[in-house]
Design a protein around this nucleic acid. Structure first.
Lengths: 201, 201
DNA sequence: CGACAATACGGACCGTCGGTCCGTTTTACA
DNA sequence: TGTAAAACGGACCGACGGTCCGTATTGTCG
């Protein structure tokens, strides 16, 4: 177990990697549906050969995951080490809705990308992706701090399910529900679920 | 606008249609992931030419939708004209959990199929499918009958999202959560959302 | 029952897309 | 500047969804 130094990438490789991520983001945003964007399109838009895509990201889903993680990074940082109401140290009853609102806003701001990720194919369940597991762990951990709750693992899944990319797309895109309405509805839904209730016998 | 009599299909066509549905159901159940089943596979298993598939169902998603609707038919009937607690005439606070339980059980019993449907591709949003709209309409209508609720359209979406096929597959399949646990957790989640709460100021 | 029109059949065929191969070019380092 | 490692790119491949068209089946009418 040497502390292998993970040699830095060559600079053309780094430049191409960025170009590909930028081109992919742009194309997904521009085109209506994610599967209208082919790997050849992305390669061409990035001014790069197809093999460079596959060498750098493995396959299509690898590219989408890498892009998603990159765009998500700021949110992740805000949740893990940021100030309240998102960061740690926030009272659970405030932090839960803040977390869900952050997820929702991210998906609203990156609809095309979130859609590409979640509909990328049933080959790999979206539930096994690192970002989902992070969100689920975090949410569940905060739920644990609230007394009187049970089944927190399931609850965390159910709450996150309300922010699924295709649902967000359906409501914000097809049904034209304004952003602030959606945020308010998710907040109200969460509040209702978490609100205190009469003691059970 | 003549009342065009919708000429009945020829009997070989009818027989082939059934054979295709049966073969598809079987293959989806047998194989791990839906996209491992090709149209050629289904045609071969049904003892039929590929063109027969496409003539009868339009395209791949058409076939999956037709199969899904066919398997769902009994549940639909039970909801629309059956006895309580699923049918009409059930008190709303009992009917909501019954409806969600029915959805969950259907997806548990037809995991492969539900998965094939929902991950069939982002081309057409699952939210525009007839069966989803039926469920959403029904759920929303029942929610409307409960005083003190708001945003029922969103709430119905959020509740249904907790029964998404890939989530069910993740929990029941990958996480090995037993069927009855899952049903109990969904019931508890629903109950918590619907339970009466202290009057707001 | 026989003929004919309508309908359905099937598998060869096509275009596209994800992914790979390999000869060529660029980078890093001495 | 010489050289080996690393990355490049586009021709190439296999698979899959979907179509075409000559052939076979069905239903109907005389």
């Amino acid at each position: 177990m040497e502390p292998v130094a993970e040699r830095r990438p060559r600079k053309d490789a780094a430049r191409n990697r960025e170009a590909v991520l930028a081109a992919a983001d742009d194309l997904f945003a521009r085109c209506g549906s994610p599967e209208a964007v082919t790997m050849a399109d992305i390669a061409a838009a990035a001014g790069v050969g197809k093999a460079t895509l596959f060498r750098g990201f493995g396959d299509r889903t690898g590219l989408i995951h890498a892009l998603y993680e990159a765009r998500l990074e700021p949110v992740r940082a805000a949740i893990e080490t940021g100030p309240p109401p998102l960061g740690p140290g926030t009272p659970p009853l405030q932090r839960i809705p803040a977390l869900l609102d952050a997820v929702l806003c991210f998906k609203l701001d990156n609809r095309h990308l979130a859609l590409a990720l979640e509909s990328s194919g049933g080959g790999d369940s979206p539930y096994r992706a690192p970002h989902y597991e992070r969100w689920h762990r975090t949410l569940q951990a905060v739920l644990e701090q609230i007394p009187g709750l049970t089944d927190n693992a399931f609850t965390a899944h159910a709450l996150l399910a309300a922010t699924r990319a295709d649902l967000v797309e359906h409501l914000a895109g097809h049904e034209q529900v304004p952003r602030e309405h959606l945020r308010a509805q998710l907040a109200a839904y969460t509040a209702r679920l978490l609100s205190p209730r009469p003691q059970q016998g």
